[in-house]
Design a protein around this nucleic acid. Structure first.
Lengths: 139, 139
DNA sequence: ACTTATCCTACTACATTAGTAGGATACAAA
DNA sequence: TTTGTATCCTACTAATGTAGTAGGATAAGT
């Protein structure tokens, strides 16, 4: 039950990009420096964030990265999904992978419900909530 | 963000033990058979459950395993902790491992709150809720 | 032309996961 | 008392995932 560094670094990268909304974009180097992420690793993370459509840039050099949506329209779960296909704390909670005993399995329902709650929590909180002052409570 | 098989099998083993409360214990072999867990792997799981104090047996042979507490006094989180030191979805949510930048890190607070919510969910649901008919809702 | 940001593919050390293997010990029944 | 078997205990391992690094290609600003 651990988040990997891609998701954690990815969120921090998105926060950094969101903070530069006014001044039109931020470079890999700046994200790496202020968020203290190895720049060569950040490349992969940025690549996945771009592929997922959460952010983009206009030039292969120097234009900086910008969000494609407003920070209050991007949930933590959106960012999570840039790196993971979906949240599935156990494989059988994935509806594509139902085991044949699932209708007699009491644990399946429990894990599924827990999974849904975690997912909902991550969908309700938006990037904007983390960019504004951290003194604001999130809920 | 995946649960490992030890926790999942461990919960199923505990359910199986709970189901035999009336008739005084269940053997490894029976747990392995009905829950379809490799018996040699189940050995490790049972060993951890015993060490954690959630269940025990009276003899090294044939007495069967029994719970040390009532099923409504054992939470899912208790079982989780038999296999993991604590729930920590990111390392810096562990208060023993605060990074020096934590007071300026907006993601730390978020992950910590999510961690707490997951932990609370797992503490509120008891083994008894999974042993009784699965048609009952858990919350 | 030169510099540098970005892009793209490949590689890798290390840790974790999900088990297996094999023998030692304990105890009950024959 | 021997034998069968449940449990206990330590070690080993194949496969996978994690957290990066390396190196060159491409693109664009100056």
């Amino acid at each position: 039950m651990k988040l990997n560094t891609k998701v954690r670094y990815g969120l921090r990268a998105m926060i950094e990009i969101a903070k530069h909304r006014e001044n039109g974009g931020v470079l890999q180097k700046e994200i790496a420096n202020t968020q203290e992420i190895p720049i060569k690793y950040l490349e992969h993370i940025i690549n996945q964030l771009k592929t997922s459509g959460l952010m983009t840039n206009f030039s292969s050099k120097g234009s900086g990265y910008i969000l494609t949506k407003k920070p209050n329209e991007i949930s933590i779960y959106d960012i999570y999904r840039a790196f993971e296909p979906e949240l599935a704390i156990v494989d059988c909670t994935c509806e594509h992978n139902m085991c044949k005993k699932s209708n007699e399995c009491p644990t399946r329902d429990y894990w599924f419900q827990l999974n849904t709650k975690i997912k909902n929590e991550m969908m309700q909180v938006k990037l904007a909530d983390l960019v504004t002052t951290k003194k604001e409570p999130y809920n």
